[in-house]
Design a protein around this nucleic acid. Structure first.
Lengths: 238, 238
DNA sequence: CACTTCTGTAACGATGCTTAACGCAACGGT
DNA sequence: ACCGTTGCGTTAAGCATCGTTACAGAAGTG
């Protein structure tokens, strides 16, 4: 606990290795489950040694979930910030591609946070996971906010906004403090759902029958349509 | 095997009860995993007795997956057939609502077939599951075929169709024998992905912060946008 | 009564998570 | 250079459970 930076560093490295190994094993067997003993074996350690780093199997799982949220959030944020602030359409495309690529690359982490809960795990209420979740998911909504303040957010192709949705947006407004119109609220959720559907189907192997080039082109068109439908301006360049 | 209808009936009932119990347990614990012993306990039987009905844990799992595909396919087909043949837009809305409602009602079965594979299970290649999968998934595409033959399939809001997608549609044409334009192919996948995204996010609890009325309204607008974007005509009535 | 089908008991082998007690190595100060 | 402290990893064991097989008895069928 006191200043022993060498120890702390080694410990952090081991923790990272444990988490990485868990992810690798999950990836290898294609599931979102892992065994404490397997991780130890893969690291050429013995199972009890892991308890020096994680009090519990659930604690490791919680850490993995929190990391997944942070990873996704970071990847998305980086993609967003690589495009000019005023090119909202371009930013949306970048965010969309990052979301999809991350889901493709890390299907297990993707399933961990956006799929069905893992067996025997109960998320700690109000823990770090929910916090990270909000942070990651607010990226998309903030994009719509930016578009709104920039005045480039065209009207989404919506017939009418149901009063229940308006009430929902209002509630969200109360919680976050940021004013959000019902149309924007609905457009954002539409865009997220649309993106997520493609990413999830692809990440879980349901588009395996389409070759890679086709999938890439399909997703680009998919995201473009989502942006257009949600009322976002077209990206500046392809 | 020989004509003993009484036995056969009881046996079928027991098989059904086993599968229903497995689904109930999965639902209760909110996962897509189950234990043979738990099923036996819940049925007030002993684990070995189950082997009289399923040679293997995997065999039960395969049956559940096949059932899930059939369930989804049947529900969707019924919803589709409840709307007039020439009201393609209305049929699409019916199919969409059925897809979503099924995912909501049976998140476990939904995850079973459209989520990440279950731990320790390897799908038998070319078994009944893949067959059922194709049958269920072809419902949406057949809807677009109908629209195409009826001549009511408007142009989807697509800029241009990538050659890779055209090649993919052509390959699909070769396999199924049904001619499908690249635009229709892309529009169909766009619609499916869009629907699936909402259904998956909601089924896995990520829309729990939206009240039920709001979700209902959101989905209706979502599906309507998906239909419009894909070039399907508007439904005849709300 | 003969025969089939089912179900329970017992047991095997393996594996899992977790705790306790022991040895080793590195670290920090003297 | 030495020594106590600290943390890490191992071995050993406890405890529970799982999937599965073998065998014997019960129940239903004709």
């Amino acid at each position: 606990m006191q200043a022993t930076p060498r120890r702390e560093k080694a410990r952090a490295a081991t923790i990272d290795e444990i988490k990485l190994t868990a992810l690798r094993l999950m990836r290898e067997q294609g599931t979102v489950d892992f065994r404490f003993a397997d991780i130890a074996r893969a690291m050429e350690m013995t199972p009890p040694a892991l308890y020096r780093y994680f009090a519990d199997r659930d604690e490791l799982l919680s850490a993995l979930i929190a990391d997944a949220y942070n990873d996704l959030g970071e990847v998305v944020a980086q993609a967003r910030d690589a495009v000019a602030t005023d090119d909202v359409g371009g930013r949306f495309m970048a965010v969309s591609r990052a979301y999809r690529q991350w889901a493709r690359k890390e299907p297990q982490q993707f399933a961990l946070i956006l799929g069905l809960p893992v067996a025997g795990y109960h998320a700690p209420v109000d823990g770090p996971t929910t916090e990270a979740a909000k942070r990651a998911m607010s990226q998309l909504s903030s994009l719509f906010m930016e578009a709104h303040t920039l005045g480039v957010l065209g009207p989404p192709r919506l017939r009418d906004v149901h009063p229940a949705i308006a009430a929902c947006a209002e509630q969200k407004h109360q919680q976050t403090g940021v004013p959000v119109s019902a149309e924007t609220f609905q457009a954002m959720l539409h865009a997220w759902s649309t993106l997520h559907g493609f990413a999830a189907l692809e990440a879980f192997g349901h588009f395996d029958w389409i070759d890679e080039a086709g999938r890439d082109a399909l997703f680009d068109g998919h995201a473009r349509l989502a942006a257009e439908t949600a009322g976002l301006p077209a990206p500046r360049e392809s």
